[in-house]
Amino acid sequence: MLDIVVPIKQVPDLVEELEIDPSGTALGLERTRFVVNELDDHALEQALLLKEKHQAQVSVIALDVGDVEETLFMALAKGVDQAIKISGDFGPAPDNHTTARVLKDVLGGLSHNLILTGVQAIDDLDGQLGILLSSYLDLPYVGLVSGVQIDEGGSKATVLKELPGGVKAELELPLPAVLGIQAAEQPPRYVPVSRVRQAMRTATIEERSAAAEGNGHIRVRRISKPQVGAGAELLEGSSEDIAEQIVGILADRGILR
């Protein structure tokens, strides 16, 4: 039996302006709305596709931060078998080293032979969750994955890893393993609101608690918002001048080959 676990992370919804805490070293979280990390949604989709193909059991697990219940109910509405919310003293914005340790703790009591996470998130200051988790669990890891196949016996996975220039590497690794998903084999499915509401009425989210020790050992000195000018900076002069200026801008940003 294939047991897939999808750890999902909450990140601030960028549709609204980010707010900075008066301390200047953290986000102001009071009015922030959270959404599931976009690539975790791809990881979930990939898990559901594997479930349909292999009758796998899929569990989503998440730390109790942000608007996690809504995300977990949506996952239940999409058809996962189990949703677990983890509480603990990790605060409202644990870093990824902390999150990975907490997850390791919970995974100890949860059968798993494939762990799928989004390969990265917009708030990964101390590194990407999937690879950190794989190291704490001492499991093999491949990131930037956009295709997953499980062999008949459920003992190994063949994955496609994205390389620069549209090239993909085909890699094989034994299970259990952790994969960092870049894109599911099809776009994350839509879940109708009536399904979500039904899940809210009838399904349950399991609760576990776990200890958080240590952290990523980095210190945030300052968070600020980048200056955004109102509109474009206009380049002037003859066509040649304009061309030269654009080339200069691209070169400075390492965009030219």
């Binding site: 990824n96 200051l125 101390d126 590194g127 950190l132 704490y136 990131g143 930037l144």
Partner: peptide, 23 residues
């Protein structure tokens, strides 16, 4: 921050107990 680098940093951070900064 590439297909290779992203599959190395986090693992080295844990294995060698080295703090890391991304992005």
């Amino acid at each position: 921050t590439s297909s290779l680098g992203m599959d190395l940093a986090g693992a080295l951070s844990v294995e060698l107990n080295l703090p890391m900064i991304a992005f």
